[in-house]
Design a protein around this nucleic acid. Structure first.
Lengths: 252, 252
DNA sequence: CCTGTTCTTGCGCGTTTTTGCATGTACGGT
DNA sequence: ACCGTACATGCAAAAACGCGCAAGAACAGG
């Protein structure tokens, strides 16, 4: 049994049955549970499955979690969102990323703020429908369920036709050396495209993202105007980022 | 039964039935009530449910979802949506309009239907995020707030790049002579553009729309494959439309 | 063909997580 | 106010996990 063959088998099983129990697979294939666990760990690192105690589940449950997650914005994200919302000038144009933090920003925008918001996230767009003064522009494309945003060639192309004063990006990894990273390459490309269409780019990073890195790089620090976080001003990672020359806005 | 799987099951149950009774679930799954209680406590800690004596409730009526929200949708629209959802073939491609009736269709689509849905409505897109098998394509453009859909030149242009088997359109006026009409010219143009990209176009029309006409024409009857309504089969307007040669699907 | 290296795989071992049960406490209906 | 039920907590057994290690296979280069 080839290793790659085994991984395919696991993915097939996952798609067919909706779950994987490490013990059963090991017994069925006559290999050790360790190998199964190792494979599962690798697949999870590539975002192809979700590792859970006892086996693995498809990544899609993460989507179900998304709808539920957006109901309650953790305190950290709310603080970050509030600071970010303060950066938006009346009459200005804002490019707003997708994800839970960006959604929190949308909700934190003053109800009667007159500005233009450009987004590739249907949930962000839906959240801004009740801002009567806000002009909304939606970037279309194939929707990546994982994070509920439009990505891919069509979305990047659509982004080329807009420009703005400010771009607020969410990422999954913020690291002094690795820069800004995210788990999906398409998403990374999309965020890059958005950033290039704005005069200034600020990163939304609740404290748990600091010091971590994901697989795909979004931007190097040079392309970023600032970082918005709820971490303490004397946090080790915050100080390192400050030393690079990036403005850090802390939400105490 | 994996622990994570059990938690998903609980969340699903919560969304479907609007409540969880710890005892029943424990009996149904053949596990101890303690495990159920522990799971509920964890979910509550993450803000995914509200713990109550005896079980749990959704964190907010909005998340309760589906069962509750659909009850909010007027009965007529729900019936129309249900019939419309039945027209969608597995593996097929559907162009879905915006508006409350189209949103009801999105919610009426089977959770695990594998199909492609193209829409210019961020709310429809958001509603379909939890359909793991559905491929979603969003048409971008300037958002018209009153109906919450992308319209205008960019949106029409984006629509030119897609095609589908079926297009489901909502309108505000359905009249035997005036044809299909709506209140906004941009929206009318957008609906026209969508209709042209699909092999078949069906109109979603709850009974109160029948016999009325709005300012801007969307389509003449010749361009329409059928009408889906909750009006009676022997309704005067329905019979007139039938006489024109348009298929009328009634949702008894 | 031989050798050193790298990668994979299975196993042992200590650690962590889960789970059902028992106990005492808090709650809600009657 | 009382009684049954639901609850939290502590506990111990079992399962799952991660890590390090060593044997073996595959591989590259001389």
């Amino acid at each position: 049994m080839l290793a790659a063959e085994r991984r395919d088998h696991l993915l097939g099983l996952l798609a067919r049955e909706g779950k994987i129990v490490a013990k059963d697979v090991a017994a069925g294939l006559g290999i050790s549970e360790d190998s199964v666990r190792r494979d599962l760990r690798d697949l999870a690192a590539e975002g192809l499955c979700q590792r859970v105690y006892g086996g693995a589940l498809p990544v899609s449950p993460a989507v179900a979690g998304y709808a539920a997650r957006q109901a309650v914005a953790p305190d950290g994200k709310r603080k970050v969102a509030s600071v970010a919302a303060g950066l938006v000038r009346p009459g200005g144009a804002l490019i707003l990323d997708g994800g839970t933090t960006a959604l929190a920003v949308a909700r934190a925008l003053p109800q009667d703020l007159a500005c233009t918001v450009i987004t590739h996230s249907p949930t962000v767009a839906a959240a801004l429908l009740d801002h009567p003064q806000a002009e909304l522009f939606l970037l279309g494309g194939r929707i990546f369920k994982h994070s509920a945003v439009a990505c891919g060639a069509a979305a990047v192309e659509a982004a080329q036709n807009v420009s703005a004063d400010l771009c607020l990006l969410g990422v999954t990894g913020v690291h002094p050396e690795a820069g800004l990273t995210t788990a999906d390459s398409e998403e990374a490309a999309m965020k890059r495209a958005l950033s290039e269409r704005a005069a200034d780019t600020y990163i939304l990073a609740s404290s748990e993202k600091l010091g971590t890195a994901s697989r795909f790089r979004v931007l190097p620090w040079e392309k970023v105007s600032g970082l918005i976080t709820d971490a303490a001003r004397d946090d080790a990672v915050v100080e390192q980022i400050n030393a690079i020359g990036v403005e850090v806005l802390t939400a105490g």
